[in-house]
C-alpha cells in the first residue's frame, strides 16, 4: 500500500457499435494511486460509472501481464501509451503526473472495425495466420526432437520474431494501417528454422495475399510499428518478408 494519489482527467472515445457515431466523453478521477496499472485506473473509472448508473467503458484485456495481446488502445496518440516495450496492461500510473489529461481511443484501422468503445475486431489477424502461418505437421508424425539441431543464433532469432503477441498496435500506429510487422514476424520466425523451409514459398505468398485482402495498407517504411511494439519486434521482419515475397513471385520452380 502507500504511494501518492493524483487527479487524472480522461477523454475517452465512446461508441455504441460498429455503425454508431462515436464521440469523446470526459471524466475526472481524483484518487489515482501511482502504483495502479493503467487498466486498474480504468477499472476504478468503470466502478464509478456503474455506481452513477452509467455504462462502463468497454475495453479488451485478459492476462494483464503483457503476453496475451488482448489489450490495445491508443493513448495520447500512441498505441499502448508512452512507455517503450510496454503493453498498456503493464503500464503504471507512476508514468503520469497529478493533473494530467489522458486521451484514449480505440486502435483504429479499416481492417479493425470498432465493436464498442475501445474494443475492436482483430479477426483479420487470425485469417492471416490461417492462410499459411504454420508448419504443416500432423500430430504424431514428428521426428525425435534432437534429430534436427538448430544453431543457437538462429534459434534466438526465431524466438525474437515468435514473441509477437498479436495485439495490433503496429497496425494502429502505421499511417497506412499496414499489418506488415505482424505478418512479417510470423514469416521470419518460421524462416529462421529448418522446420519452416519446406513451405517457405507458399507461406509468404498466401499470407501476403491475405493481408492485402483484409484491407491493410502497404508498408512505406515509417517504422512507427517497431516504435510501439510492446515486445520489440524488429522491422527486419518486414524486410525478410519482402525479400521472400519477391523471390517467391519470380521463382516458379
Amino acid at each position: 500500500m502507500g504511494g501518492s494519489n493524483m487527479t487524472i482527467h480522461l477523454k475517452i472515445w465512446r461508441q455504441e457499435g460498429p455503425e454508431a457515431e462515436g464521440r469523446f466523453e470526459t471524466y475526472t478521477l481524483d484518487q489515482v494511486n501511482e502504483h495502479m496499472s493503467f487498466l486498474e485506473m480504468l477499472d476504478v473509472l468503470n466502478e464509478q460509472l456503474v455506481t452513477e448508473g452509467k455504462l462502463p467503458v468497454e475495453f479488451d484485456y485478459d492476462c494483464r501481464e503483457g503476453i496475451c495481446g488482448s489489450c490495445n488502445m491508443v493513448i495520447n496518440g500512441k498505441a499502448h501509451g508512452p512507455k517503450r516495450l510496454t503493453a498498456v496492461c503493464q503500464l503504471h500510473m507512476r508514468n503520469y503526473s497529478d493533473g494530467d489529461t489522458i486521451v484514449i481511443e480505440p486502435a483504429r484501422a479499416a481492417a479493425f472495425p470498432v465493436i464498442r468503445d475501445l474494443v475492436v475486431d482483430r479477426s483479420a489477424f487470425d485469417r492471416i495466420i490461417e492462410a499459411g502461418g504454420y508448419v504443416s505437421v500432423k500430430t504424431g508424425s514428428a521426428p525425435e526432437a534432437n534429430t534436427l539441431p538448430v544453431d543457437q543464433f538462429n534459434a534466438n532469432k526465431a524466438f525474437d520474431y515468435a514473441t509477437c503477441i498479436g495485439c495490433g498496435a503496429c497496425v494502429a500506429a502505421c499511417p497506412n494501417s499496414s499489418a506488415s510487422l505482424f505478418t512479417g514476424a510470423k514469416i521470419a520466425h518460421l524462416n529462421k528454422l529448418p522446420q519452416g523451409q519446406p513451405e517457405r514459398k507458399n507461406r509468404v505468398l498466401a499470407m501476403v495475399e491475405q493481408m492485402e485482402k483484409e484491407g491493410f495498407g502497404d508498408c512505406s517504411n515509417f517504422a512507427e510499428c517497431e516504435a510501439v511494439c510492446p515486445v520489440g519486434i524488429s522491422i527486419s521482419a518486414i524486410a525478410e518478408m519482402r525479400r521472400d515475397y519477391m523471390k517467391a513471385m519470380f521463382d516458379d520452380n
Binding site: 508448419v135 514428428a142 526432437a145 522446420q195 519452416g196
Partner: peptide
Amino acid sequence: NEIIDQAVAQGVPFAREYSGLL
C-alpha cells in the same frame, strides 16, 4: 517425450545449447 517432438516440429523455438540441441 512425444509432446516435445511435436512442438519442435511445429517450429516452437525452445532454448538450445551451443551445439544446437535442446
